[in-house]
Amino acid sequence: MHTALRGTLRSLWTSAKALAALSLILGLAYPLAIWCIGRLDPAAADGSPLTDAAGRTVGSTRIGQPMHSPELFSPRPSAAGDDGWDAMSSGASNLANDSAELREQIAARRASAAQANGADPAQVPPDALTASGSGLDPDISPAYARLQADRVARANHVDRARIDALIAANTQHPALGFLGEKRVNVVTLNAAVRALHA
């Protein structure tokens, strides 16, 4: 018993030293080395900042933003934080697929999206009705972008064709033809809409 206890105490001391040694390599050297490599592509490693014509940072191209102005495209609904789009509180609604609350939310979103864009409620695409996983999804479907195009064109006093061109320029196609979904980055799209007046 006495030797077993001594062995355990020695093992605890060995554990502490081993953890310290491994922490130096895995917890300091490794992340710092990756940080150094990240400096080769600072835009990505620093969070893909988006700057406006005046050079101010107005967001990140990868993080969706709240949009309430009628002259800008609306993003997907967001459940991040209390009012949505809180990048310090990312997350989903976690509502069950069959919950009454989710059903009500979907109905309300369908009605408001149809009304805001003067469209038939049946045409509102699924991504406009549902909150994303992160609550910060920067993308919308091409269908949702098209649904909003008329409204955005009118509010900005430009031709629908110019808005369509901006949508096309901000549409990402599946890489190699099969990786991922066709989608429109609503953050860069809205930046392009703002730049129309610059």
Binding site: R76, A92, S93, N94, L95, N97, L102, R103, I106, A107, R110, P125, P126, D127, L129, T130, A131, S132, G133, S134, D137, D139, I140, S141, E181, R183
Partner: peptide, 10 residues
Amino acid sequence: AGASLEGREL
């Protein structure tokens, strides 16, 4: 209602 995207990223 098209909710297969609830909680999912586009």
